[in-house]
């Protein structure tokens, strides 16, 4: 049984960020930090992704909570962030740190797969593959997970796939 201690999340988060920064800079990895509400994203260049992931795993971030991808068609890029946290390291348990990379929006966007580093990324990478069409190099089993192949080909979560929403002005002529 675990008694609920009062725990200050923001200090844990600060500690986790320090730890992650140290881990990355000790490997000589260049990164930039972006702040969100309740988490930090560490953005690295594509070639540092695997090395950065390995460093973070060694620093105690043992699983992927969410593989978050956002499409920015105007800037022609995807922002792909592995949101990580830790179960086993009590000091930083629960603090969410993102390891991210920006992927150009080309014909066949691809990034190296991190399934070898974090098993928990396996299904989420398959999901991103079907929804955004981003290929993960070295993924052991890259197939659509949730969708049937024809639907997956639509790449539904990209911004250029538009789902129409009815609105109250529908059918009302603009003038008069």
């Amino acid at each position: 049984m675990l008694q609920a201690p009062s725990r200050d999340y923001s200090s844990v988060l600060g500690l986790a960020l320090e730890k992650a920064k140290n881990a990355l800079s000790s490997k000589g990895i260049v990164f930039s930090v972006e702040e969100g509400k309740g988490f930090y994203d560490i953005i690295v260049e594509r070639e540092y992704l695997v090395a950065g992931a390995t460093a973070l795993k060694e620093a105690g971030f043992d699983h992927v909570v969410s593989l978050t991808v956002t499409d920015y068609p105007k800037e022609k890029k995807f922002r792909l962030v592995y949101h990580l946290t830790s179960y086993l390291d009590y000091e930083i348990a629960g603090a969410i740190i993102g390891l991210g990379v920006e992927v150009p929006r080309s014909d066949r966007p691809s990034v190296p797969s991190l399934t070898q580093v974090w098993r928990s990324a396996e299904f989420q990478e398959r999901e991103v593959y079907e929804f955004f069409g981003i290929e993960f190099e070295g993924h052991p089993d890259l197939r659509p997970l949730l969708l049937t192949p024809p639907v997956a080909e639509l790449r539904p979560l990209r911004k250029d796939f538009v789902v129409r929403e009815e609105n109250i002005y529908e059918g009302v002529p603009k003038s008069g």
């Binding site: 969708l147 639907v151 639509l154 539904p156 796939f161 789902v163 129409r164 929403e165 009815e166």
Partner: peptide, 8 residues
Amino acid sequence: GLFYNSYN
């Protein structure tokens, strides 16, 4: 229903 405009 709620998913009237869903693609799936």
